[in-house]
Amino acid sequence: MNLAKTFSKGIINENPLFRLMLGMCPALAITTSVENGIGMGMAFTAVLLASNVVVSLLRRIIPESIRIPCFIVVIASFVTITEMVMHAYAPALFESLGIFIPLIVVNCIILGRAEAFASKNGLVPSVMDALGMGLGYTLALVTVSAVREVLGAGTFLGIPIIGLIDNPALVMILPPGGFIALGCILALLNKMQQKKAQSN
């Protein structure tokens, strides 16, 4: 597989959230504003990139039978580093993402990529894989949070949208809104795929 393909598959064909249905918890919880979505996506990408690099470099040293605990330690370390850096330099974002920063540890995508890709591939493909998956997940989070922020708060990245700001549909930024937004986006994607399949 060439590098460009390794990179781009994470964005569309194997998008972690929309296609593989992984990492749902943060996608529902923190997508109340586009800013949160971008912040979470960046934190996630940083952890995924770092863990893919380390796992790929150590893939010949780590004994087969204890690889999962080793991966978990590596991922948890990078999550903790990300958490500390965010706490120090982006405290507002740290507050609003809250518990979901440490919970990146149990985001199945990262362990999944370490196990399925980085432990079997060299450094460069692993980096491309992490960047592609990270970007794909970030785009997915931004999509969900854009729908929720625009409809629920009448703003986009905090900028008021004329006509929507006066009477926003509050429910979209409350917990049910997360389920509604993601459900409708997935349904829309299904519809598009069916159309494509029919026309072929």
Binding site: M21, G178, F179, L182, G183, L186, A187, N190, Q194
Partner: peptide, 21 residues
Amino acid sequence: ASLKGLPISLITAALMSIAFM
């Protein structure tokens, strides 16, 4: 057809969430 599977489950969850609110 396009709502089958996960989308309808998510929307069901949304209604449950509203009820729990």
